[in-house]
Amino acid sequence: MPGCGSSAWEAPRAICLYSGGATQEITARGNFCGPVLLNNQGKVLYFGFNELDGNFYLYDAGSTSIIATGTNQGLVNPTINDLGQIVYAAYDNTGYPQVFLYYQGFTTNISQSLKLGNNNYPQINNRGQVAWVHYDDDMRWQIVLYEGGKVGQVTSGYWSFDGWTLRLNDRGQIAWIGKRQASAATGQVFLASPVDSSSFYLLLLLD
């Protein structure tokens, strides 16, 4: 099985956790490439290979479980919040990259029916909101936000995004570097803040 640390010329690796003043290896020495994420509950999310495939693993208080598997599914860009919810990008059965949400043993494709491009970095906050970039029906990139089972579109019109660097905070604000016009030479920093619905529709009218 290909993967980092899996052959004689690749160094074996292990995931280490420093806690309470001591360091322990929480995995056997093998094929662990990263990324490694750690939430405020001490849960460790990491990527590695076993004898069958590439997987996302979740270490929690001494036990480890596989939360997603499939190298060919292109598992990439996971994030974890303090509730233990995990989002990541992977291909669905039709070959489109999608955004998946894992929580307490169940996985949901939360970007169902929306097209995605490559290089998606979904972000989850501690309210369970998820933001990412996708193509709209006019093949334009847009930021969308998942909350409570629904996906809402945050941007409209022309956008391009530098480095796909979305950031989402616990207030639901989203920041990114991007261009609002195709002719713009340089990406700028933008901040999207939630507004109450009455203000929002007024903004739509005035826009």
Binding site: Q112, S113, L114, D136, D137, Q142, V144, L145, K150, V151, G152, Q153, V154, T155, I174, A175, R180, Q188, V189, F190, L191, A192, S193, P194, V195, D196, S197, S199, F200, L203, L204
Partner: peptide, 15 residues
């Protein structure tokens, strides 16, 4: 809006 997406109530500011 594209199928499957609704408008979210956001104001966008260029920084």
């Amino acid at each position: 809006l594209p199928a499957g997406a609704e408008a979210a109530a956001y104001a966008v500011r260029q920084i």
